Simulated scan of single mutants.
Amino acid sequence: MIEDFFRLLGAGEIEKAIEELAEPLDWFTPGSTDLIPWMGRRTTHEEVRDFFRQATGNMTTEKFEIHRILVDGEFAVALGHFQYRIDATGRSFASDFALELRVVDGLITRYHMHEDSYAIALAFTG
């Protein structure tokens, strides 16, 4: 389930990946929404679509790796590393991350990203 979600994202199949999400959803990426529009809370599929539109419209993926997925019942943590380039500034940023997930009835109901949002802000502001 979780592996399918990441496989679909990696293949650029955003709509199919969104089908793996419950609605409503507890989606959270920390950071200033005034500075970085795709940060913050989302609860609907349309809001998640907007997350991906904003993120992919403003930055280019240089690396995204899942190193390990740890599962405990309906809860999971995906550990990995990413690197992106902000298109407007040309600056790259990288961070290790822990992604907290919950799966209920075959759908992802919780998606909380824990990353270095300060590094993102620095790259975004130029």
Results as ranks from 00 to 15, higher is better:
Pro30Ile: 00
Pro30Phe: 01
Pro30Glu: 03
Gly31Lys: 03
Gly31His: 03
Gly31Val: 03
Gly31Trp: 06
Gly31Glu: 04
Gly31Arg: 05
Gly31Asn: 01
Ser32Glu: 08
Ser32Ala: 07
Ser32Lys: 04
Ser32Pro: 12
Thr33Asp: 04
Thr33Gly: 02
Asp34Met: 05
Asp34Tyr: 01
Leu35Cys: 08
Leu35Ile: 15
Leu35Val: 15
Leu35Asn: 04
Ile36Thr: 09
Pro37Cys: 05
Pro37Asp: 00
Pro37Asn: 00
Pro37Ser: 02
Pro37His: 01
Pro37Thr: 01
Pro37Gln: 01
Trp38Thr: 06
Trp38Met: 09
Trp38Ser: 07
Met39Val: 06
Met39Asp: 01
Met39Cys: 13
Met39Asn: 03
Met39Gln: 06
Gly40Pro: 12
Gly40Lys: 08
Gly40Ser: 08
Gly40Asn: 07
Gly40Phe: 05
Arg41Tyr: 09
Arg41Pro: 06
Arg42Cys: 09
Arg42Asn: 09
Arg42His: 10
Arg42Phe: 08
Thr43Lys: 15
Thr43Leu: 06
Thr43Ala: 15
Thr44Gln: 09
Thr44Pro: 10
His45Thr: 09
His45Trp: 12
His45Gly: 13
Glu46Gln: 15
Glu46Lys: 14
Glu46Val: 10
Glu46Phe: 11
Glu47Asn: 05
Glu47Trp: 03
Glu47Thr: 05
Glu47Lys: 02
Val48Gly: 12
Val48Phe: 12
Arg49Lys: 15
Arg49Ile: 12
Asp50Gly: 10
Asp50Gln: 15
Asp50Arg: 14
Asp50His: 07
Asp50Val: 11
Phe51Cys: 12
Phe51Ser: 05
Phe52His: 14
Phe52Ser: 11
Phe52Leu: 12
Phe52Pro: 14
Arg53Ser: 08
Arg53Val: 06
Arg53Phe: 09
Arg53Met: 02
Arg53Ile: 02
Arg53His: 11
Gln54Ser: 13
Gln54Asp: 13
Ala55Phe: 10
Ala55Asn: 10
Ala55Trp: 11
Ala55Thr: 10
Thr56Leu: 15
Thr56Val: 06
Thr56Ile: 10
Thr56Gln: 13
Gly57His: 08
Gly57Glu: 06
Gly57Ala: 05
Asn58Met: 14
Asn58Ile: 06
Asn58Ser: 14
Asn58Gly: 15
Met59Trp: 11
Met59Ala: 13
Met59Leu: 14
Thr60Ser: 14
Thr60Pro: 01
Thr60Cys: 02
Thr61Gly: 09
Thr61Leu: 12
Thr61Pro: 10
Thr61Asn: 10
Glu62Tyr: 07
Lys63Asn: 08
Lys63Asp: 10
Lys63Gln: 12
Phe64Tyr: 14
Phe64Thr: 02
Phe64Lys: 04
Glu65Met: 02
Glu65Leu: 10
Glu65Trp: 00
Ile66Leu: 07
Ile66Met: 03
His67Lys: 05
His67Arg: 05
His67Ile: 00
Arg68Leu: 09
Arg68Tyr: 01
Arg68Lys: 11
Ile69Leu: 02
Ile69Gly: 00
Ile69Thr: 05
Ile69Phe: 01
Leu70Cys: 00
Leu70Ala: 04
Leu70Lys: 00
Leu70Trp: 02
Val71Asp: 01
Val71Ser: 00
Val71Gly: 00
Val71Trp: 03
Asp72Phe: 00
Asp72Glu: 07
Asp72Ser: 07
